[in-house]
């Protein structure tokens, strides 16, 4: 499914993936630095193109390219597997500044909350991805251990309706850093 609008943030923008992004998405997912954090890799660039082609037609499946404010592609994130009032967030891989990766997660949550009008998101993190797992545990509720692509993983849920302290803290930090950046740019 193609969400027609660009989602604007302070540090990044999200726009729906297109077939022109196939090579970028294949390469960033295949990059060995990201292999521990992303799911099953398409066997070829053509297979990745086919995946995007199918994804674009799939109802309630959103796949975004993350752009920095120079317009450079720095990552991917998606929301899919809609079930009732909950959607899964994942396919995430970002190679950018900490401000950019953290804002991407806020923007996808805002999209699920404000555009899709959902109450919860869920996500799966591979058990060997210790660093990301520790971060996710702080923001989300652990539901159960699961198997994904033959790997041990953990399923988490995130309540979009209640005020999350970590989310508020991240928003505050990002706003302060953005203000500072704007101030420096104006000098």
């Amino acid at each position: 499914m193609v969400y027609p609008e660009v989602i604007h943030g302070m540090f990044v923008d999200l726009r729906s993936i297109t077939l022109d992004d196939a090579e970028f998405s294949y390469n960033i997912r295949a990059d060995k630095r990201n292999r521990d954090t992303v799911g099953q890799l398409a066997p070829s660039l053509e297979a990745q193109r086919d995946f995007i082609r199918r994804q674009m037609q799939e109802p309630n499946d959103y796949y975004f390219v993350v752009l920095n404010k120079k317009g450079e592609r720095i990552g991917l994130i998606g929301a899919y597997n809609l079930q009732g009032d909950m959607i899964e967030v994942g396919r995430e891989v970002i190679v950018g500044e900490p401000t950019e990766s953290m804002e991407t997660e806020l923007l996808i949550n805002d999209f699920c909350r404000n555009v899709l009008n959902l109450k919860r998101t869920c996500g799966v993190v591979y058990s060997n991805n210790v660093h990301h797992l520790n971060e996710v545990k702080k923001k989300n509720t652990f539901i159960k251990s699961v198997q994904r692509g033959g790997h041990e993983a953990m399923l988490f849920e995130f309540d979009l309706q209640s005020e999350n302290q970590i989310e508020s803290k991240i928003r505050k930090m990002l706003k302060l850093l953005y203000k500072k950046q704007q101030h420096l740019n104006s000098l």
């Binding site: 900490p98 401000t99 953290m102 660093h131 520790n134 971060e135 970590i166 930090m173």
Partner: peptide
């Protein structure tokens, strides 16, 4: 173990 994008942002 607790090093993550969130901690990186907090350091920044």
């Amino acid at each position: 173990d607790e090093y993550s994008s969130l901690l990186a942002l907090t350091i920044v």
